[in-house]
């Protein structure tokens, strides 16, 4: 066989492999949307879940997912911001910085179930928080920190050193230069990072089943007092999310319409995550245009 033929065969194989991968994605999205969307109705989104009867909705799971996401971002963003600033602006080039970077890498490669178990051990058991939104948000924070920190760090590093020199040469403190000049210039990158991490957090389940728990108690959506046990804002109540819900109805096998509920929930989950990805892209482009062009 001459090299020309080999070349053609190899190229052909590559095309087949690429087509297969695209096909897999189309199948996945198609399957989820085609089997799931018919079950997504206003009723499905706004009624409570049922354990032993068919026809349950995902109202509480949807709210829990969003609430957990917001809490997680509130806790993790300031820490990631501070750490990202440290790594990009202050970190000296020595062994300690190397160690810290390694630690962050280790954290990012830990299986999420291990992070969930750590949260369970420390917060649910040791600190007696019980299965709660707060414990879940903390576990998700640990899960989220390495990626968010890295995206903050990278966005800051993308800002040209010329900007830092400009600030410093005007007599601004290093800190003011960072917060007033470098950080605003890095906002598009940081925002994109936040939204992408939000997508990841939104779909995460393994870190949550033993921290936020697997039950969605009935809550009162008109009780705005976070201290009250029946309030939907109470951070100390257990909270099953959409992702955990899919896992649970499938593994427990007591819900008669588990299949349609899972497809519907998967569809909702995927659509929300697609929206996150899309908005990250659009927002990044838009902010970039806005910053470089006329106001």
């Amino acid at each position: 066989m001459n090299s020309k033929t080999t070349n053609n065969i190899a190229t052909g194989i590559i095309y087949v492999l690429v087509a297969a991968v695209v096909g897999i994605l189309i199948f996945l999205l198609g399957y989820i949307l085609i089997t799931g969307l018919p079950h997504v109705s206003w009723h499905f989104l706004t009624s409570a879940a049922q354990s032993f009867r068919a026809g349950g909705g995902i109202r509480d799971q949807l709210f829990n997912s969003l609430y957990l996401l917001v809490l997680t971002l509130i806790i993790s963003f300031p820490i990631a911001l501070g750490s990202g600033i440290y790594l990009s602006e202050y970190a000296p080039n020595n062994w300690l910085t190397g160690l810290i970077r390694t630690a962050i890498e280790v954290l990012s490669s830990l299986p999420s179930v291990v992070i969930g178990l750590f949260g369970y051990l420390l917060f649910v058991i040791q600190f007696r928080m019980g299965f709660s939104i707060l414990a879940g948000a903390i576990a998700l924070t640990f899960f989220n920190l390495p990626l968010l920190t890295r995206s903050v760090e990278e966005s800051l590093e993308d800002v040209s050193d010329l900007q830092r020199e400009a600030g410093l040469s005007l007599g601004l403190s290093h800190w003011k230069t960072i917060t007033g000049i470098v950080l605003p210039a890095a906002v598009p990158g940081i925002l994109t990072g936040i939204i992408l991490s939000a997508g990841r957090v939104f779909g995460e389940a393994a870190a949550l089943i033993y921290t936020a728990g697997q039950s969605a108690p009935i809550v009162n959506y008109s009780n705005w007092n976070p201290m009250s046990t029946t309030s939907f804002l109470n951070p100390m109540r257990p909270a099953e999310t959409l992702a955990v819900h899919i896992w649970k109805v499938n593994t427990e096998g007591v819900t008669p319409d588990a299949l349609s509920i899972s497809s519907g929930t998967s569809a909702v989950l995927i659509i929300v995550i697609l929206l996150f990805n899309l908005s990250a892209r659009l927002l990044g482009n838009w902010m970039y245009k806005k910053m470089t062009a006329t106001k």
Partner: peptide
Amino acid sequence: ATHQDYFGKALSYLCITFVGLLVLSILYFI
């Protein structure tokens, strides 16, 4: 400006220390 710098440095050191301690405690507890 000097005070701002101390403050900012302290703040970012605090965050990174937290992350470091977090990883250590995960390793330790597990």
